[in-house]
């Protein structure tokens, strides 16, 4: 067996999807944690400093490259699988099986993932590019560290003052929730976790994660739109 086969056979492709999936789940934990600082009720100081730390630390900048590699690998492999798999049944059924036996979201991972990718492009345009490449107004806080930091909090408040942006973000979060509801447990199964004691744990944690994390993300634009922060 060649090394490449381990990642290119039909089971190998599952490993790629599972490994990148778990990595992206890990990223979501970091992202939601840092963003939750907007609720510190200090006019964005804690959040701006946390965001500054993420942008200014070399280890995290290196990880960021890995993150983009992971996202694109997950997306390209996922889309290729979707198209290849569809071709395996040239003549379909008169009466499709539909929801008798599987959940709609487990059969719609390609669609949900595409919605998430479209959202990500909008999201990068709105936040990631301005904070990394184009100039953002700085703010200086006078307690201890005099160095100025980007006012990402101000950009969030401005961006989420538009209703349509909030709606786009909420739709993306709902897509993410359903994507995770299948993807979380499926990723671990793909990586070969079969012991029922772990599967029970992973299913439970997966459902909790799929609800809590997207809900927290969705509440961020909503809180800003309604001026709760």
């Amino acid at each position: 067996m060649k090394w490449s086969e381990l990642f290119t056979s039909s089971v190998g492709k599952k490993f790629v999807m599972g490994l990148t999936g778990v990595f992206l789940i890990g990223f979501l934990v970091v992202h939601v944690g840092i963003n939750a600082c907007i609720w510190a009720m200090d006019d964005g100081q804690m959040f701006n400093r946390a965001a500054h730390f993420m942008g200014a630390t070399v280890v995290i900048r290196i990880l960021e490259v890995g993150l983009f590699a992971g996202i694109f690998l997950h997306f390209i492999q996922g889309l290729m699988l979707e198209f290849q798999n569809r071709k395996k049944r040239a003549i379909g059924y008169q009466i499709p099986m539909a929801n008798r036996g599987s959940k709609w979201y487990s059969r719609s991972m390609g669609l949900l993932g595409t919605i998430i990718l479209i959202f990500l492009i909008i999201h990068w345009k709105q936040f990631w590019i301005p904070s990394r490449f184009t100039e953002l107004p700085d703010v200086t806080y006078d307690n201890g560290n005099p160095a100025p930091v980007h006012d990402l909090f101000g950009l969030m408040k401005e961006t989420f003052s538009h209703g349509w942006v909030v709606i786009v973000y909420v739709i993306a979060c709902i897509s993410l929730a359903y994507h995770l509801l299948h993807g979380f447990q499926s990723a671990f199964r793909s990586l070969g976790v079969y012991n029922s004691r772990y599967l029970v744990l992973i299913n439970g944690v997966g459902i909790g994660f799929s609800i809590i994390v997207p809900l927290a993300f969705a509440m961020m634009p909503v809180s800003m739109y309604f001026n709760w922060v």
């Binding site: 089971v11 699988l81 290849q84 395996k88 036996g101 599987s102 059969r107």
Partner: peptide
């Protein structure tokens, strides 16, 4: 095709 764990 490849398995996507739908459970059908």
């Amino acid at each position: 095709g490849s398995c996507t764990s739908t459970g059908a």
